[in-house]
Design a protein around this nucleic acid. Structure first.
Length: 452
DNA sequence: TCTGGGGTCCTAGGACCC
DNA sequence: TCTGGGGTCCTAGGACCC
């Protein structure tokens, strides 16, 4: 084992029945009563059930219809107020950031904290005091929400720790005792082992982590594949050295909708795609990113689901492009029987924008900017601002790339090959005047082509 | 009234390149 | 000319998580 911490310094916090808890906080008449938050329509599912509702068998991901059948009259079924959850979540995350600069938020109600980076003592008494204090402050600051805390030597163990003692839990797993905690547990309690993997493992007699520990690496890889198999092999040995990573960049953005009744009319489907594309694009633009791949998700009346995708040569962040591509993808799908769900996604999110190296006509490009952008040049970071309407046609213009920071909107309409002015390096295979002495670290196949 | 919505990661095959 | 290995990109589907 390499890199695994020798101290219990990873904290995992999981807020208890978070959405329902916020509802009970804001509406005292709901306190002590079963509350179910989620889709309330015919095709809704449960997002969160309060512990009172769980006592009747309501569970996350259960259909709302099933939850209604199980819960007594007087149970509150609520649609969800995501703005309120988000504000409350921020209060909690701010508290965590007081503990350490390294906080990785996993979702609205879950986060990891690197206590070592916060300089905290890691003996069990100190950790228990720290967690007790955190839980109390969290409860006060949120006005009533509670959370469960696990502290251990790795993310996996910390998460398992918070899971084992909820709700309102606190479990410290001291370094050295990981396997004692892990081995009696059912494999299904390991993060990453869901119904399919659980069934596979159980079909060969692996039910507990101890069973898992007895199997060879090649057995497990043969059973569930390379990545998952070696992951389980390491997990059974408490071998998990994944770092806490704050501010992960999003890799895709999508929007989807399940319709109350199945759609059949092509015009209606195309209209829906337009509005999904618009939702996706507003988020892309808000984040200042652009993507190269459009994916259409399509769920039939019988729940069979398929996806179709297409990758364009240029990054885009406009609703017209996303909608047009998605509608083209729709045209290739058999819609017989009706459509239950449509989704539109954009991936291949650009950290850079690439000009067209292979345009037939190497005319200088004109970029039409729709708002101010900062362009960050690499490998030597430097910025230059472009303004709306500013003519960036330039003597240096030829062929090349523009790298942009993720925070700034750098998607502009390229009317042909482009090299921006300023500190961005340029390179063109057929024009030595445009080649810098030390070409930047080219990425992507287009760059390789141009060099070979 | 069966089965939401937003994500991540992995696999596998084919194309294409070196 | 034949064989082939390694690597990346693209597409489709699936498992899993909250």
């Amino acid at each position: 084992m390499q890199g695994v911490r020798s101290e219990a310094s990873v904290l995992h916090l999981d807020l208890d029945a978070f959405f329902a808890a916020v509802e009970q906080r804001d509406k005292p008449s709901l306190r002590g009563k079963p509350v179910v938050v989620g889709g309330t329509g015919g095709r809704g599912v449960v997002a969160t059930a309060s512990y009172e509702a769980r006592a009747y068998g309501a569970r996350s991901a259960m259909s709302a219809a099933e939850a209604r059948r199980r819960c007594p009259p007087g149970t509150a079924f609520l649609g969800g107020r995501f703005a309120a959850y988000s504000i409350t979540s921020r209060v909690v995350m701010d508290l965590l950031r007081e503990l350490s600069p390294l906080v990785e938020q996993v979702s609205v109600d879950e986060a990891y904290v690197d206590l070592a980076a916060g300089g905290h003592a890691t003996d069990v008494d100190s950790l228990t005091a720290l967690a007790t204090d955190l839980k109390e402050r969290l409860h006060t600051a949120t006005g009533g929400v509670r959370g469960s805390v696990g502290i251990a030597s790795s993310k996996t163990l910390a998460k398992i720790g918070s899971e084992l003692d909820k709700p309102d839990g606190l479990l410290v797993i001291p370094a050295g005792s990981e396997l004692d905690v892990l081995h009696p547990l059912p494999v299904r309690s390991l993060p990453g082992v869901g119904p399919a993997t659980g069934d596979r493992l159980s079909s060969v007699g692996i039910r507990t982590v101890a069973d898992l520990h007895e199997r060879s690496l090649s057995d497990l890889v043969g059973l569930v594949g390379q990545a998952h198999g070696s992951g389980l092999y390491r997990l059974a040995r408490a071998d998990d050295d994944r770092p806490i990573v704050p501010d992960r960049e999003a890799k895709s953005v999508s929007a989807e909708r399940t319709y109350a009744t199945d759609l059949t009319d092509l015009a209606a489907l195309e209209h829906e795609i337009g509005s999904l594309a618009q939702r996706v694009v507003s988020r892309l633009q808000k984040d200042g990113t652009a993507g190269r791949t459009v994916t259409l998700k399509f769920r039939r009346y019988d729940f069979t689901t398929l996806t179709r995708s297409q990758t364009l040569t240029q990054p885009f962040d406009d609703a017209r492009t996303v909608g047009d591509v998605a509608r083209r993808l729709l045209a290739g799908i058999d819609r017989t029987g009706g459509v239950r769900l449509l989704g539109v996604g954009v991936s291949g999110l650009a950290t850079y924008v690439q000009g067209d190296l292979f345009a037939e006509d190497p005319e200088p490009a004109v970029a039409v900017l729709e708002e101010d952008v900062d362009v960050v040049a690499e490998p030597e970071p430097a910025t230059r601002q472009w303004h709306p309407g500013q003519d960036v046609e330039h003597a240096e213009m030829g062929r090349g790339w523009v790298w942009g920071s993720g925070l700034n909107r750098v998607t502009v309409r390229f009317e042909g090959p482009l090299t921006p002015p300023g500190p961005v390096r340029t390179y063109a295979g057929d024009d030595p005047a445009l080649s810098p002495a030390d070409p930047p670290d080219w990425r992507g196949t287009e760059a390789q082509k141009s060099r070979s």
